[in-house]
Design a protein around this nucleic acid. Structure first.
Lengths: 211, 211
DNA sequence: TAAAAAACTAAACAAACGTTTGATTTTTTA
DNA sequence: TAAAAAATCAAACGTTTGTTTAGTTTTTTA
């Protein structure tokens, strides 16, 4: 054993995880070979099986690293008693627009794994992570409804529209004038998406219009 | 040569095309092997290369068969002078909800190929087909704006929200209460999606509210 | 009906895949 | 510092992949 107090786990294990996140995001799960991962991480091919059991295990380890981060941010919003339901929703939009557009490659991989129902293990895991986060967002909308500030719209479909818009933008930026793969990280492009989502949600949800 | 007046082209060619549409839809492009295709179509493996040049060529032939059908329906709507812009938009929603939810497997493949930018040929082709159709829809919204019936919203982002919602529903039905892979073809589920999209678009677009 | 063209086939090709084996090196334990 | 445990490695395993080759059968042409 290398060290018992190693909070970063083994070097090579960590290297593999980081390279995996990058390469899976860039090329997709099946397009990345174990040899490619090993070479990029400067590690022997056998280490993937050694540390993660399999290529699938490595992918799941990447998920387990990334998902909890966003959930913590949402929980912070939920706990904030100063914010109105609409303000929470608006902040949620900000969070997710940035998350999707900055980390577009990673999100593309998730969507691909969800639509390609080839690996049920991945589908189940990702769906579970997503459901957790959406539950919190649903709380924001229902809070607004209870307080008489939001209409009683189809909450689940409304959330689907938000995430769907983001998927659409990330997967298909070329169908939006002026937007492309390379400027998606800019404030200008992200502001455009934020503004649209907020405007659309506001007219859809708000009982009384006004900022 | 088999026959010059063969409007169905060669039998085996057609068989391959049909099997390809089914199998690509069911499992995705890369998950289907040429041997699998050939076996299912009761054809020799070499016929794929013979008729379509490659597996990619076969995929592109499937696209060329499917896409024009929807475009024709949209063009019919565009040519109808009896319909208001909103009625055209509402019909468009009906068309696409049915198209996506009934042909969900096929649409999943398209989205996968778009997000997995691994095969630029496919991406370009699909994007071009999509852009053609979206151009027509854009016309409906702009017509409503010119006629003073619609607000001057971000048209492209609004369209992205419609298609995004559909993608989200099709890829992730399990996140919507009561909806799943197997009941998505039912009127009840499709009506739910249609109602949501129309309600959301109406409050987003309409200058004066009312059905 | 004989020659030419097209359709079709079985077999082989080279490359890439995820994973395992068995041995070696490095680190930890005591 | 010797024994035990963990980490690392090169090499090989068996499969599967998309495509091609070289030959045979079927159809069309004239």
């Amino acid at each position: 054993m290398r060290s018992t107090t190693n909070f970063e786990k083994t070097d090579k294990r960590q290297q593999l995880l980081e390279v995996a996140e990058t390469l899976f995001a860039r090329h997709g799960f099946e397009a990345v070979s174990i040899r490619q991962l090993a070479k990029e991480a400067d590690v022997n091919v056998a280490m993937v099986s050694y540390y993660f059991g399999s290529k699938d295990g490595l992918f799941e380890a990447v998920l387990a690293e990334k998902f909890p981060k966003t959930r913590e941010r949402l929980q912070l919003l939920a706990a904030d008693t100063q914010l109105s339901p609409w303000e929470k929703l608006a902040s949620t939009i900000d969070i997710y627009v940035e998350k999707f557009m900055n980390g577009r490659n990673f999100h593309r991989v998730l969507m691909r794994e969800m639509s390609l129902k080839q690996r049920p293990q991945h589908v189940k895991l990702i769906a579970a992570y997503m459901a957790e986060n959406q539950q919190i967002i649903r709380g924001f909308i229902e809070e607004g409804q209870v307080k008489g500030q939001f209409r009683y719209v189809d909450t689940e479909m409304t959330i689907a529209s938000v995430f769907g818009t983001l998927s659409s933008v990330v997967n298909n930026s070329n169908l939006v004038t002026g937007m492309n793969e390379d400027n998606m990280y800019t404030t200008a492009q992200q502001t455009r998406v934020k503004d649209h989502l907020k405007a659309m949600l506001q007219s859809h949800l708000m009982v009384t219009k006004a900022g």
